[in-house]
């Protein structure tokens, strides 16, 4: 699950340099589509709805806010998560008269294979974008947005589209994850943790290569499980310390470390010219 969240986050934020804290919003939209339609519609369509609803939200929010730069964009997207959570809570309490909802159960095997399929599609999309003209355009926006405008890139449109693509996968994952949890409420669905984790995992893994976020997410998820079972009371503390060390000593993430080692082996002659 975290692999998809992280890789899809990197599709947008890794290249353009806009730090988005919106994944939790898209994730939550996915979860709620599952809760709303899970009873009536087949699973495939529910996941589709989750993805598309998230993408629509991303298009709307993107068109409104992608003019914001740097930290302002990050804060706005974070605010969005809270806003939706509270609005939904208000709606549930005052209009529907409930707090949470039950989600139809799906057996674990199905969840596993659906998740695997979403992951493969996400990786494939990310890979194709990286190699495409569209991907280089996103990269150039991240490098120097003003220059990207000058060479004739429709900056606003590209940013919004990339934002929407990353939201599709996040929403789809939300829709399938909901079936595992059986009960949800606005604060379970729109948990800000799902905004922060992808960012941390991407930084931990390194964003320079496709495998960076994948490794980062995989190691992080295992680490989390491991620490929870071994040190149930201190796991967050240990987690935090590992993260701090990683950010201080591995500015380019694990990918950076791997490349540094490789360079040392092949000889340090070109150490500063490549990436």
């Amino acid at each position: 699950m975290y692999v998809v969240l992280t890789v899809s986050w990197v599709i947008f934020s890794g290249s353009t340099g806009y730090i988005s804290l919106a994944p939790a919003a898209f994730f939550g939209v996915g979860i709620y589509s599952s809760a709303l339609f899970g009873n009536e519609l087949p699973l495939g369509i529910v996941i589709g709805i989750g993805g598309i609803a998230s993408a629509c939200l991303a298009l709307l929010v993107g068109a409104l806010t992608l003019r914001l730069k740097g930290i302002y964009f990050a804060i706005f997207t974070f605010g969005l998560v809270m806003l939706i959570a509270h609005l939904l809570l208000f709606w549930e309490i005052n209009i529907t008269g409930t707090r949470g909802r039950f989600v139809v159960l799906v057996d674990y095997n199905t969840i596993y294979y659906v998740m695997l399929a979403i992951m493969v599609v996400t990786l494939l999309t990310s890979f194709l974008i990286r190699r495409s003209k569209f991907g280089s355009a996103l990269q150039s926006i991240g490098e120097n947005e003003e220059a990207a405008v000058h060479i004739g890139i429709n900056v606003t449109m590209f940013k919004v589209i990339a934002f929407a693509i990353s939201a599709v996968f996040t929403g789809a994952v939300g829709a399938i994850m909901a079936t595992r949890w059986t009960y949800i409420d606005p604060f379970i669905a729109f948990n800000p943790l799902y905004s922060f984790m992808p960012v941390l995992m991407a930084i931990f893994g390194g964003m320079g290569r496709l495998y960076g976020p994948v490794i980062g997410a995989a190691i992080f998820s295992y680490l989390e499980e491991f620490l929870i079972t071994k040190f149930p009371y201190y796991y967050m503390l240990i987690f935090g310390i590992i993260l701090l060390v990683a950010i201080l000593y591995l500015p380019d993430g694990l990918v950076g470390l791997v490349q540094k080692l490789r360079r040392r082996i092949t000889g340090g002659k070109y150490a500063n010219t490549g990436r």
Binding site: S136, N144, H150
Partner: peptide, 14 residues
């Protein structure tokens, strides 16, 4: 206003 972390060739291609 160059793309500072891209190579000369990549800058030109962009």
């Amino acid at each position: 206003k160059l793309f500072a972390d891209m190579s000369v060739r990549e800058n030109l291609e962009m």
